[in-house]
Design a protein around this nucleic acid. Structure first.
Lengths: 227, 227
DNA sequence: TAGATTGTTAATCGATTAACAATC
DNA sequence: TAGATTGTTAATCGATTAACAATC
């Protein structure tokens, strides 16, 4: 039972939220039944991959029919842990911390229950219905509240130290926006999801330079040849 | 020349920004020379992968010596297009749009030159040194300014329509934070980098549930057996 | 020169796709 | 039942790792 879902590749896991989203969109547009073939067309992936991915977790479909979108979405939700509420705190109440606090992850069960910063000017500021506390109140807060996830929106210089405080006080999941790879520094039973926005922007820049740019060069060249 | 950098896999590209970051950190700590072996230890990847990745773009190292960190960083920067300034606009001046506008991507050459929203209350609001304009001023703005990248921080309902306006007005690169896969809907010469924050959070939730949770269960069970 | 480390070819591994029997 | 579509095994493809000759 415990090992049931072991050995599932990262690639598969990272596709699950996308399936979840597409199934939600389908339900919103009134579709209750979907085959791997239809879904594959919408998502631009192979039907084979969809069936392989899902069958890592169980047979959710029915031969000759396809999948019930509502049931499948719910099952994927359970696999992802979205059937539970996950209390979350935000460390770093700057612009990005505020943005995430206001984002509306609540509907997926991620509930912001606290926010912290070292800047005294921010003390008491409201993000939705939580007020920003000073960072030195963090250990006591963690002692008195159930918190599963800590979101780190602080500069990289502070990230490692704060992460260690979090781990010492029982946090096992960190959503890290600092420019450092926290997973390499923390114990194995702490899961870290890094979101490196500047690296995302660099990938876009690469594609812009090497795909769009190259295409523009090519057209220019063809134009020159025609002259 | 144009096809020189063709056929490089996405996996390789997405590792380049991380190399770039590690090389920057190394330089900051005074390291000027690095071998693939040393770098592989720090980054927890194989030295083989580092050498393979880099050799897609050229031989930046020297046998018996390793790599000059400064030169290598600069070369990767060029590959990623970071040696150029990329004018950028932000569509959607809510919390997330403001956060991104204030983030400080400038140092990598991503310069925010405009911000737009449909909410009249936000008109004239300053994000750093640009003021928020109304969305209907967008086409004229794009006609009069050079803009390479559009950041989309708007609800998914509006994203497709706005993306089409952008493309019609000459935008070829979209950094998309809306919950929809714009790349599937736009022409092939438009590059899209999707950042789906809620999907990132779901991956964290999966790992929390299935790794940390499973580990806790295991410990509990062992404890029970001992009794 | 000897030692170190690259660049690159070859081997392995894992992920994706294809095919099809099972079955609703 | 016949048609459709899954679940699953087998084949292919691509990415990662290992090995080593080239060379600084």
């Amino acid at each position: 039972m415990i090992l049931k879902e072991k050995g599932i590749s990262k690639a598969v896991i990272s596709r699950l939220p996308r399936y979840y989203r597409y199934l939600g969109d389908l339900l919103d547009s009134g579709v209750e039944r979907i085959s791997s073939g239809e879904l594959s067309e919408r998502m631009k992936v192979t039907a084979s991959q969809i069936r392989q991915d899902l069958n890592n977790f169980g047979g959710f479909g029915q031969q000759g029919y396809g999948y019930n979108a509502r049931v499948l979405r719910e099952e994927i939700g359970k696999i992802l842990g979205l059937d539970k509420v996950h209390p979350m705190i935000i460390i770093g109440a700057g612009h990005l911390g505020q943005a995430l606090g206001n984002y509306g992850f609540d509907k997926n069960g991620f509930k912001v229950v606290g926010a912290f910063d070292i800047n005294p000017d921010l003390a008491g500021m409201k993000i939705r219905d939580v007020s920003v506390q000073m960072l030195d109140e963090l250990p006591e807060f963690l002692d008195q509240h159930v918190v599963e996830i800590a979101t780190l929106t602080i500069p990289k210089e502070a990230a490692v130290e704060v992460a260690q405080i979090l781990v010492r006080n029982g946090i096992h999941a960190i959503w890290n926006f600092a420019h450092t790879d926290l997973n390499l520094l923390l114990p194995e039973d702490v899961v870290v999801e890094n979101v490196h926005l500047s690296e995302s922007l660099m990938r876009l820049s690469y594609n812009l330079t090497n795909i769009v740019g190259a295409e523009a060069d090519r057209k220019k060249k063809i134009g020159a040849e025609k002259r």
